[in-house]
């Protein structure tokens, strides 16, 4: 597959992102608070943090970068291979990638240099509260 295959067009500079508030923002203008508020409003989604703990060239898949993260309060270790231009959203900083030059070439998106210690926005599905703890629920006539 060509190097551009699968580049998500969400990251193209100028792409319009609709927040959970209904507000429209260009992808390059997104801020940490936009993710936080949207996740809150969406219900069932929780903002989590994934810290970059190691960055290196992929051994198995040349051309890709292997990123090691520790995720959430449990500090779970997660490893992923991504193209060097793939942007991540760092808390309080904004878009960052292993290769800001490539990100700029392919997406036009300005990025910071991703570094070990960066804490990236990630979003998990929130576990539903246990039934015992459930308080008064609004009436759902069409519960499935």
């Amino acid at each position: 597959p060509g190097p551009a295959a699968g580049n998500p067009s969400h990251f193209m500079k100028g792409a319009i992102i609709q927040l959970a508030t209904g507000e429209l923002k260009r992808v390059e203008d997104l801020q940490t608070q936009d993710f936080v508020r949207s996740a809150e409003l969406s219900g069932g989604l929780k903002i989590d943090s994934s810290m970059v703990v190691d960055i290196r060239a992929s051994q198995q898949r040349p051309g890709l970068v292997t990123l090691h993260f520790t995720v959430g309060e449990q500090q779970s270790k997660v490893t992923i291979d991504v193209p060097p231009e793939h942007p991540f959203f760092v808390f309080g900083q904004g878009w960052s990638s292993y290769s800001p030059e490539r990100t700029a070439q392919l997406y036009g998106l300005a990025c910071h240099q991703m570094q070990v210690g960066d804490v990236c926005v990630s979003i998990t599905l929130q576990r539903p509260p246990s039934p015992q703890k459930a308080t008064a629920q609004p009436h759902h006539p069409q519960q499935r």
């Binding site: 969406s42 994934s50 995720v71």
Partner: peptide
Amino acid sequence: VPVFPWHSLVPFLAPTQSD
């Protein structure tokens, strides 16, 4: 210009814990 709902970005963000 296409409009993407914000949650369509979620799969491209940093990984979450797999449990």
